[in-house]
Design a binder for these strands. Structure first.
Length: 408
RNA sequence: GCGUAGGUCGGAUAGCGGCUAUUCCAGUAGACUGUAAAUCUACGGCCCUUUGGGCAUCGGGGGUUCGAGUCCCUCCCUACGCA
């Protein structure tokens, strides 16, 4: 018996995409939905009231970060995450598996979780050179995270102290934090990793999934839902294999994780969702550019989370229907119009680009808040409109008109 | 007028005889996809046949030296002190 209940409402004709309702202990999520990322039990620069006012339905925090600071026991003591951070709606936690990648293979070498083939060619070459040169690069790779069969050895990015996560430990910590939906402990691989490594890592992720599930059944009290994670890198064979194996396990929902080629995120999602059970929610982990959201929804994704809207906001990039703009550009200093005149967000209703330009140049803290509000509103609303379009049988038209304008 | 300390990119600086004049800020762009991130990268004098190359440049002028932002002379300017 699951603590969450997913009910598909309507499908996109001839596609895997659907609109649905996800019932959780802390409220309903209408899907597809964008999950706002609040890694350290806070959506950076925003109060929960502000996050809620943007239409956000659910927030995702991170096990690794909260374990290190302030400590999961303290969050439990503070009444678990909802009470601790004053977010009354549904919550999720990521397992810390992603940090095996971001603090391991990806640390300091400019590798993102999404590669485009042109760049990855160059990066692969660089990685090959580094490998030839030997130990220094390899040591660098293991600077903050080292993966073994039993789990991942981490060094804290805060104070350098050593820590170890096993699948069981990740689940235990996630219980303490107390989110409604928690994720299995997986290994997120680098987009540069070759087939052989992906296959090896995938086997490990599957064994870890089994251990998470066993532990969940043994120790869980039925108030938290466990999501399994599909991996497999860019390889169709591995992705499908993973979807079959993970999809057959008794998880409450599924996450799709790992690295993609920019061009075929959508295809890869399609491979996987073909095999995942229809009556359980599917979450595409860490993806959130408009094109990817359309592709994901079309191919059967119900939930997305992504740091992009808030992170790029803090760095001065703002979404508009005509593409992203960089508010630091000189041309905005005297532009006394809103980011978008027909935008319903708080920022656009009260402030001009010239003012935002001023706040950013002056390094004023309000810049982060106003920019984050706009970008989150933009993305949350975009996914809501996709949902509406599915219900109205107009998804492909909406996708076409949005895309034509956004990617000029 | 005398003394002292100085004049190096828009601002602030490092350099104190050795070849490529440093760093920070400001400036101009770019990047960012389960947050190591209010972060990071690039550019920033002129010219060219521009994946490179050439010529400049440290207040002005002159000198010493194989070689000068650096040493010497002189002038100009700034700050402080004394008259």
């Amino acid at each position: 018996m699951s603590s969450i209940q997913f009910t598909p409402e309507k499908k996109i004709k001839g596609k895997l995409g659907r609109a649905g309702i996800l019932q959780t202990p802390h409220g309903v999520i209408q899907t597809p939905a964008f999950v706002v990322v609040g890694t350290k039990a806070t959506v950076k620069a925003l109060t929960p009231e502000q996050v809620s006012s943007l239409g956000a339905q659910v927030v995702l925090a991170n096990t690794y970060h909260l374990y290190l600071q302030p400590g999961h026991e303290r969050i439990e003591k503070g009444g678990k995450i909802q009470k601790f951070m004053n977010w009354n709606g549904p919550t999720m936690t990521d397992s810390g598996g992603f940090q095996a990648f971001s603090l391991g293979a990806a640390f300091g070498n400019g590798v993102g979780k999404v590669a485009n083939s042109k760049a990855s060619g160059l990066l692969q070459k660089a990685a090959a050179n580094a490998a030839e040169e030997g130990t220094e690069a390899e040591l660098e790779t293991e600077r903050f995270a080292k993966i073994t069969e039993d789990g991942v050895e981490f060094r804290s990015v805060i104070d350098g102290s050593q820590h170890f996560f096993s699948p069981e430990k990740s689940i235990d910590i996630q219980y303490s934090i107390g989110a409604d939906m928690i994720f299995a402990f997986d290994e997120c691989t680098s987009p540069l990793a070759p087939y052989q490594y992906q296959k090896e890592a995938l086997g490990r992720t599957h064994r870890w999934a089994e251990r998470c599930l066993d532990h969940h059944k043994k120790v869980g009290n039925g108030t938290q839902a466990l999501m399994g994670i599909v991996q497999g890198g860019r390889f169709e064979e591995l992705r499908k294999e993973s979807a079959k194996i993970i999809g057959a396990m008794d998880f409450d929902g599924f996450g799709i994780g790992g690295s993609f080629e920019k061009e075929d995120i959508n295809t890869a999602v399609g491979w996987v969702n073909e095999f995942l059970p229809e009556n359980k929610p599917r979450h595409l982990l860490g993806i959130g550019e408009p094109a990817d959201l359309f592709g994901g929804v079309e191919n059967g994704i119900d939930l997305f989370d992504c740091v992009a809207p808030t992170r790029i906001a803090r760095n001065g990039s703002l979404y508009t229907h005509d593409g992203k703009i960089n508010i630091f550009n000189a041309k905005f200093m005297d532009d006394f119009t809103p980011i978008e005149s027909d935008c319903g967000c708080y920022t656009c209703q009260h402030y001009t680009k010239a003012y935002l330009s001023h706040l950013f140049r002056a390094k004023e803290i309000l810049a982060n808040t106003l920019a984050s509000m706009h970008n989150l509103y933009f993305i949350i609303t975009l996914v809501k409109r996709m949902r509406q379009a599915i219900l109205n049988d107009s998804f492909s038209e909406y996708k076409k008109s949005f895309t034509a304008r956004y990617y000029h």
